[in-house]
Design a protein around this nucleic acid. Sequence first.
DNA 1: CAAAGTATCTAGCCTGGCTAGCAATAAGGA
DNA 2: TCCTTATTGCTAGCCAGGCTAGATACTTTG
Lengths: 178, 178
Amino acid sequence: MGPTSRATPYWYEDRDVVGMLEALRTFRRADQDMRARLSAGMHMNVTDLQALRFVIAAENAGEVATPRGLATHLHISTASTTKLLDRLTGSGHLAREPHPSDRRSLVVVATDHAHEEVRERLARMHERMAEIAREVPVDARPAVEDFLVRMAAHLDTEGDVPPLRPAPRRPAAPTTSG
Amino acid sequence: MGPTSRATPYWYEDRDVVGMLEALRTFRRADQDMRARLSAGMHMNVTDLQALRFVIAAENAGEVATPRGLATHLHISTASTTKLLDRLTGSGHLAREPHPSDRRSLVVVATDHAHEEVRERLARMHERMAEIAREVPVDARPAVEDFLVRMAAHLDTEGDVPPLRPAPRRPAAPTTSG
DNA sequence: CAAAGTATCTAGCCTGGCTAGCAATAAGGA
DNA sequence: TCCTTATTGCTAGCCAGGCTAGATACTTTG
């Protein structure tokens, strides 16, 4: 309890640590809420907006977006992707075009209207985000980036299979009955 | 295009900025994926796990969790909360108990098994997260926290109503017609 | 005490995922 | 070349997990 000879006792360091972790949670919550509001404001669900942004990003990068690529990126099935494309072509945000080299596939393109709407709603936000990033002291920036990247790498290794329960149920694989 | 007299030309600064923003996206993606894996590993959906953690957090804070509080926290309706409680009591993670002072309401408590399972799966992860946070240089920590908090605050102001469309519909508040 | 408000639950609907299976096309080996 | 296998996107039909509306029990307020 009493002060020690160290300039920064252990509990002081911990306050920083707790602050950063709380800030991380705060950010995540804010980001999630923003996405929900944004997609609701565009009269679509969160996945559809993510898809739209993926297609636009692909176009900006000079690449072609296919339904298969969309399914992979969004971690949904190709069947769900078909429905998603039906929704977004129906709303006038996307269009299906023939694939130049693979006649099984097709190319997904964003309409001018979609480009405009997304740019309109996100340009200001992205600008301000960069501004906030620029407000970080130059010599602290590598630490910020490092912290986030390392945290992401850690999360990629967590939450996998349970270390205890041996996978409770497996609907398939009939052994005795049936 | 050519080099200037400045030690850190503008594009160098921008590289830091871009790096931080990319790291932010990377973190968000990793966090989302982790949550999906974690809840899948516990045979529940993401919302249910969030609810479970909310109840446990309330207990640890010496507070009581009610269905209403759960609904508010999760941004779902009370009807959906009833279904959620049915699922989680059915799986043996939560239990409904009488509310000590409001006989309309009830108190939601986590079972011992739920406490144990969550602690088991999250303790190591949280420890490692704190470890990663402690690896951030002490003098950079305020900048890290600030960056995240400011970014969160910004996101809280974005994605709202479109700056163009005049708030599509407002069911209540009749002014002229009706 | 009566009226209005609040908490939870039930009933029934809708969205957005999923799997299974299909036709068309591509890719690879005998 | 030709036959087999893999891949792509689609349709059909199912299910989980949200939602609104309305019922009931209780609390709060005038």
